[in-house]
Simulated scan of single mutants.
Amino acid sequence: MSSTTEHYEKLLTKYLDGQCNAAETAELYSWLQASGSHRALLKTMQQEFQNAFNTQQEIPVEISDRIETKLLQSITETKPKTKIHTLWYYAAASVAAAIILLLILKQPTPELANKPITVAASITPGTNKAVLTLSNGSTVFLDSAGNQVISQGATTVLQKNGQLQYDSKASSEATVYNTLTVPRGGQFNIILPDGSHVWLNAASSLRYPTSFNGKDRRVDITGQGYFEVAPNAKQPFIVQVNNMEIQVLGTAFDVMAYSDEKSVNTTLIQGAVKVNDKRLLPGQQALMDPATGDITIRNADVEQVIAWKTGFFEFDNARLSDILRQLSRWYDIDINYKQTTNERLLGGRISRSLPLSDILHMLEANGPVFELVGRKLTVK
């Protein structure tokens, strides 16, 4: 972190503690308007406080938590093999400090007012949405607002908001399969017939039986999913990913198997799994080369791996091309970018609830220039 950044980090902390004088307050406000990335942060702060004060005389805990996680989010260049967290967390020290900040943010800001709104401002984050393909081939569209009951023989499927839940009764009928497909710009979660819980990231799919009647519980996944498997020692849970099998008894783990990524990653959060014939310990990650089938085991940053599930992008020594692939899936955009061999390494933690324009401003502060036409993003 640069000395300049450290200075403003300390200044912001001092401000939120109500200890800034008028000159320091003016300095901080000028810095927040100094660049595109700072302006994006300022806008986010202003929206959070404005929403709070439009409806509340006091800031409740849940609002202050949102302010804390969104107050300053940035992407900065990192050094190879160096772990740098560039999201600064600050909570408003008191309601009085928050009121002071709100009053400052509400002052007229010609630079912001005259800045044209880019096309990117209209591209919003992903939402809860998916398509359920039933055993007879018919499809049901799902979103965060839908509530419905779907019957398939002895199986009842309940959709409630952004979740799908199965209630299967013992049946001698032949095993049938459903597929839950999440498009780009979406996410969804499902409770399987055995009680196992699966969260699917954008551009992912899960194929599974409507009841687990065999010697094991077997599902197939593409894309990325986070699993919390219901324990059942007599009926192992198996996740099939291309030519790789993940064998589970009861555990929590993440699988990332996008076709445009260089490896299929299985990260164990708790419990135990075997990836083909290799056993993982909590905090370890198996990387399989799709071309050769070779598997490498390494220690993982678990928080970074499952950041998507908790509502964040998190990068550590990531190339711009790596970041753009994630943005492409979550914001449903196409990327036109010629990757170079000397790409900068970037780090940061950013809320997935931000509009695309805010994230592009942060990235542009580190060098790249973007042009967005429709849903096609070109890196110049």
Rank of each mutant, 00 (worst) to 15 (best):
T4Q: 12
E6D: 11
E6S: 12
Y8M: 10
E9S: 09
E9R: 12
G18F: 08
Q19E: 13
Q19T: 04
N21Y: 05
H38T: 07
K43W: 01
E48K: 08
Q50V: 08
E58V: 07
I63C: 02
D65K: 09
K70E: 09
L71V: 14
T78H: 11
P80Y: 09
A96M: 03
I100H: 13
L105G: 02
Q107S: 14
V119M: 06
G126D: 07
G137W: 07
V140E: 08
D143F: 13
A145Y: 01
T155F: 01
N161A: 09
N161W: 01
G162F: 04
Y166R: 01
D167G: 00
V182C: 05
G195P: 04
W199N: 14
L200T: 02
P209V: 11
N213I: 09
D220M: 11
T222S: 15
G223P: 04
P231A: 07
I238A: 04
V239F: 15
V239I: 15
M244W: 00
I246R: 02
L249E: 01
D260F: 03
N265T: 05
K274V: 01
V275G: 04
A286V: 04
A286N: 06
E303I: 04
A307N: 03
W308H: 04
K309S: 01
R325K: 15
S328R: 01
Y331H: 04
D334S: 15
T341N: 14
E343T: 10
G347F: 10
S353D: 13
L354M: 15
S357N: 12
I359S: 03
M362T: 03
P368V: 10
K376N: 12
K376P: 00
V379G: 08
